[in-house]
């Protein structure tokens, strides 16, 4: 498909999924006539019409619940929640309904819905438009959570999410929307739960997802100049996450850093670190170090937000510490 921006890859995946399956439909706030707050759904109303692209009122709980009910009635809804911060209003429908239906009903049916939502800072959008809340969702049995790191991944993971029989939350880092990258003519069909080695290396492993993958690669460049080869794992999927891939890498590099833009405490990195200490203890030559946001709400002001978000320097510092 050539080079395209991340946002265009999301748009293309929606367009292709709707072409391939007439049960796929979109619902969200201003996704139709306006094409979405970030324009991820641009032109889709014109192409597929109002019977498949629903401009919903501002009512996140109903939007999410409608997706659950439609999914239980043989449709494949893709809901958009404009900012991840707003999923607080969707939580009953995600946590108590979508996540539990299959298990609670004894394996009858499933809830093949997708919820797309952007997280992350960099736009000085402040404490209620910048949060990375994916760890909440990864904590709930029955939900799947993916977070693409580049345009090709954005296309493939969204297609996989729409094809998946279970509820999948696709978290898109809004700072990546303008990122350009090659999307293959025949994009890879990815399996949700499989990680990807974004950069091979033998001296230390950095596990990251979403926008943190790029930061980890930048840190790896810095370390390479010093003769240290860092392996970067793009987790792609947070729930389920590819424990085997991380363990295999750790068993070669013996040092591990986990990076995410979300708050460090009680986060995805904590889970990965705990599992690796449990099943990979003998492989560790140094402490597992997490790099994430400090334990504070995401701030508005430029200097504050810059200090808040993880960057390549902090990953380099973490790598030096674990390698010391």
């Amino acid at each position: 498909m050539g080079e395209m921006r991340y946002l265009k890859a999301v748009n293309q995946a929606l367009k292709d999924a709707m072409r391939d399956d007439s049960t796929v439909f979109l619902i969200g706030e201003d996704i139709g006539a306006a094409g979405g707050s970030f324009k991820a759904t641009r032109d889709l109303l014109d192409i597929y019409g109002p019977e498949r692209v629903y401009d919903a009122p501002i009512a996140e709980a109903a939007i999410t619940g409608i997706a659950v009910g439609a999914a239980l009635t043989n449709m494949r809804p893709v809901a958009e929640i404009m900012f991840m911060d707003f999923i607080t209003l969707s939580m009953d429908m995600l946590v108590n309904q979508a996540a539990k239906a299959r298990s609670m009903f004894g394996g009858q049916g499933s809830v093949p819905m997708v919820l797309r939502t952007p997280h992350g800072g960099g736009l000085n959008a402040g404490p209620q438009h910048s949060q990375c809340l994916e760890a909440w969702l990864a904590h709930v049995p029955g939900l799947k959570v993916v977070c693409p790191s580049n345009p090709a991944e954005a296309y493939s993971l969204l297609r996989a999410a729409i094809d998946d029989p279970d509820p999948v939350i696709v978290v898109e880092n809004k700072a990546l929307y303008a990122m350009k990258g090659e999307v293959p003519e025949t994009p890879e069909r990815v399996e949700i739960g499989k990680a990807r080695i974004a950069r091979p290396g033998e001296d230390a492993t950095v596990v990251a997802y979403g926008a943190a993958v790029g930061l980890a690669e930048a840190a790896a460049d810095v370390m390479a100049a010093e003769g240290v080869e860092v392996e970067v794992i793009d987790l792609r999927s947070i729930q389920p996450w590819d424990e085997a891939c991380v363990l295999e890498s750790l068993s070669r590099t013996h040092n591990l850093v986990v990076v995410h833009e979300a708050v460090e405490a009680f986060g995805v990195g904590a889970e990965i670190a705990a599992r690796m200490v449990d099943i990979g203890f003998d492989e560790l030559d140094g402490p597992i170090i997490r790099v994430g946001a400090p334990f504070a709400p995401s701030p508005f002001g430029k200097t504050l937000e810059e200090a808040y978000r993880p960057n390549a320097d902090r990953i380099v510092t973490a790598l030096r510490r674990t390698l010391a």
Binding site: E51, T64, A70
Partner: peptide, 16 residues
């Protein structure tokens, strides 16, 4: 909680 779920089911019926 049944209210939004049923609203979604009704939307599916309408589309079908």
């Amino acid at each position: 909680a049944g209210l939004p779920i049923t609203t979604g089911s009704a939307l599916a019926h309408k589309m079908q």
